[in-house]
């Protein structure tokens, strides 16, 4: 009877090994599916044009024939370094603003007791359901009225791209959760020590919640790196644009041949910085993303 239910040990081990083998095979299959676009981008970026326009395509280029000239061609076509600098400037400014405003408000929601707190928090959460396009329409008029669009200076362009994004309900919610996990005892202890709320926030809560703040910083920077619609709407000159716009504009509606080798070289220039940041800060990014999927 026991034999029938459990089988013998060898059999179980073999079955488990086969099962694991199938799991690995499936994982490898999907990993290849994920990696193919990256491989194709890199491969095309290092091919000479004649090899790019070959049918059937070459699936491999030996290291001795790697063509790095495509990158300088791409950089001549559009000022990608400038776009990257713009993107970094916008990311840094909007992230600093976001962290300050969300830390202050999350502290109020997590630790202070005031009239209308729960209602206000509920209203803020409810706005997360509304599609951003509804805001974009009016925000565009608002930044025009603020004088940030017409006869635009670099400073104005930066303002238009950062100020509307200097806070976030989602990050506020995210930080409030982190603040709430700080034990109340610490708060009372700080009070006994004669610390003010402000000192308590910056000296105790912020250091404790630093992993969450780091995650917010990274997620916010990544959003800027991907931003396309808003920068396109509010920048008046090519040199004020961010990487996504710069990349699309450089190769859109092109007259003449489509220059795939240059396209992919430029795409790689835009993709690599983010991947480097990711590999360096993997722990924080992954934690932030997996946590953002967990409510409550």
């Amino acid at each position: 009877m026991e034999q029938a239910v459990y089988g013998n040990e060898k059999q179980i081990k073999r079955r488990r090994r086969i099962r694991l083998g199938i799991v690995y095979a499936l994982l490898v299959f999907f990993a290849i599916f994920i990696l193919i676009p990256f491989y194709w981008m890199i491969l095309t970026a290092i091919k000479v044009e004649a090899d790019v326009l070959r049918s059937p395509p070459l699936l491999w280029v030996s290291p001795t024939e790697w063509q790095f000239a495509n990158f300088s061609l791409a950089l001549e076509r559009a000022p990608f370094v400038r776009f990257i600098i713009n993107t970094v400037v916008v990311a840094v400014i909007s992230t600093i603003g976001t962290v300050i405003t969300t830390v202050l408000s999350a502290f109020a929601f997590a630790r202070l007791n005031f009239f209308g707190r729960d209602i206000l928090f509920f209203i803020l959460i409810a706005t997360m359901m509304i599609p951003g396009e509804i805001f974009v329409i009016t925000n565009f008029i608002t930044v025009v009225n603020f004088g940030w669009i017409r006869e635009q200076t670099y400073f104005n362009a930066i303002l238009a791209m950062t100020v509307p994004f200097m806070t976030s309900v989602f990050y506020m919610f995210f930080l409030r959760q982190a603040f709430k996990q700080v034990p109340d005892e610490l708060y009372y202890a700080a009070k006994v020590d004669g610390k003010t709320d402000r000192q308590y926030l910056w000296r105790i809560m912020v250091p404790i919640a630093l992993p969450t703040i780091t995650t917010i910083t990274i997620l916010n920077a990544m959003n800027t790196w991907n931003a396309y619609i808003w920068p396109r709407l509010v920048t008046q000159r090519e040199e004020f644009r961010l990487v996504s716009n710069g990349l699309r504009d450089a190769f859109d509606e092109g007259i003449g041949p489509p220059l795939y080798h240059e396209q992919m070289a430029a795409a790689l220039i835009v993709t690599v910085p983010l991947i480097i940041v990711f590999l360096m800060l993997k722990k924080y990014i992954m934690r932030g993303v997996s946590r953002s999927g967990i409510k409550g």
């Binding site: 990696l35 991907n226 396309y228 990349l247 190769f251 991947i275 993997k282 992954m286």
Partner: peptide, 22 residues
């Protein structure tokens, strides 16, 4: 996990162009 996470940290325009060429 790192491989499966890669699409999240790329630029949608850049990868879109790569797909178009694929």
């Amino acid at each position: 996990q790192t491989i499966f996470f890669l699409p999240y940290v790329t630029n949608a325009i850049a990868i879109g162009m790569a797909f178009a060429f694929l």
